[in-house]
Design a protein around this nucleic acid. Structure first.
Lengths: 230, 230
DNA sequence: GTTTTTGCACTGACCAGTCAGTTCAAAACA
DNA sequence: TGTTTTGAACTGACTGGTCAGTGCAAAAAC
């Protein structure tokens, strides 16, 4: 409604300094919840679009439109498109890590074995992917890229998640439940990959299958019940 | 011959055309072979750039520059950037599929079990990824995307590769080597994922490890020798 | 009163794809 | 043999369009 009746936009000559109102995520008694809601909407819009098309092919205009928000609002809330994406990554992996940890700890509290813990984490991973398929998709697509701005963010965040699996494997080796010969980092990566790829395939190519079905198949593989009858 | 009977070379706006000093290129193959060589150079340039940056973030100018070729040559050889990429995908997955098939067949000819065949295919997969890490990276990054031009190409090509694994699993079920309860497509996807993710992690985060090391770790997982001592 | 959002015009950089012109190996010719 | 012609392969400046990010005043929310 407003806008631009008077005062021509400044060209190159009068390059005005960007005056961005303070980011300060600190104490904002005013519309803290409101701002948070806007950011959430932007995350949700961005995650699906970027999962479908990739980061570069997704425009800020699209994100704003899908979030039902003005483009200016995107830049009021995030310094740039990349920053929005990085925070999205951090947020998403944070959820996953917490979920994995919880699964491992609950199993331990119940006195379960380490295989049980791994199994519980597989399920937690599947539940996560079931709930946030787009995020998972986007994460996998970006994980092994190099030369991108958010590369370091991604590494940190990846390690947090994998470390949870590695921890359980190491405890299992320590208490004799797992062979001492297993390669912890490699096995952890393989397990994560197994779940990731199986789940993405599930969602992409046979979405009618139930989570329990998929979980059972992966459990069987984990416990070496593939070879050998029954 | 076209134009240029008189005066210096001119572009359309009268700007003088740069006359490049000719590389003598005495060993240049002429005719068809030359074109094929150009396409090969373009594939190689494109595969690494797209693996690093993604499809949309990679420009045709970059690809041409890295291939040591003019931009126009890209469009002389491929209808578009997408077509170049699609042919790259087809070419790469073709190599992988052939390699997996060969591994399975050789094992069968040797009278090996189906687990042996799976193990041989794991190794073949690792060898492939070891040789073409950039292609693998790019493939994984694009596989679960939707709304992209090459979506259908990707599906076809994926199915070719996974089908080889599924075939071995089915044969194993048929001859009683594998449990009848296993879910063939899901298990195949999980196995592929296990190898893919473990290998990409290997290449990205611990490239000093030997292929045998990685293979041993995955073999152990396949044969259920993780839980249980020794 | 302050913070957040809106709406939209605007800029500058970047980029896919085009096309008039150039090169050269091999075929046709002398 | 040497010379001319042909046309597929290649070149790179250029075009038309797209998009991230800016600027700002009014309005809405708090």
């Amino acid at each position: 409604m407003s806008g631009r009746a008077t005062g021509p936009a400044r060209g190159r000559s009068g390059r005005a300094v960007t005056i961005r109102t303070m980011e300060s995520s600190s104490t904002t008694p005013g519309g803290r919840a409101r701002r948070e809601a806007t950011r959430q909407k932007l995350y949700e819009a961005a995650v699906t679009l970027i999962a479908e098309q990739g980061f570069s092919a997704t425009t800020v205009d699209e994100i704003a439109e899908r979030a039902g928000v003005a483009k200016g609002t995107v830049y009021y809330n995030f310094a740039s498109k990349s920053v929005l994406f990085e925070e999205l990554l951090r947020h998403g992996v944070g959820l996953l890590t917490a979920s994995l940890k919880e699964a491992a700890e609950k199993t331990a509290a119940r006195g379960g074995s380490k295989v049980d813990a791994l199994d519980a984490m597989i399920r937690a991973g599947l539940v996560f992917i079931d709930r946030y398929p787009a995020f998972t998709q986007l994460y996998v697509a970006e994980l092994w890229r190099t030369n991108r701005a958010w590369q370091s963010t991604l590494m940190v965040v990846r390690q947090q998640a994998v470390a949870v699996v590695e921890g359980v494997l190491r405890e299992g080796v320590a208490n004799g439940e797992f062979s001492e010969e297993i390669d912890v980092p490699l096995t952890a990566a393989a397990l994560v990959g197994m779940v990731l790829v199986a789940a993405l395939d599930w969602k992409s190519f046979q979405p009618e299958r139930s989570l329990d079905d998929v979980h059972a198949a992966l459990s069987r593989l984990l416990q070496g019940r593939v070879s050998g009858r029954r």
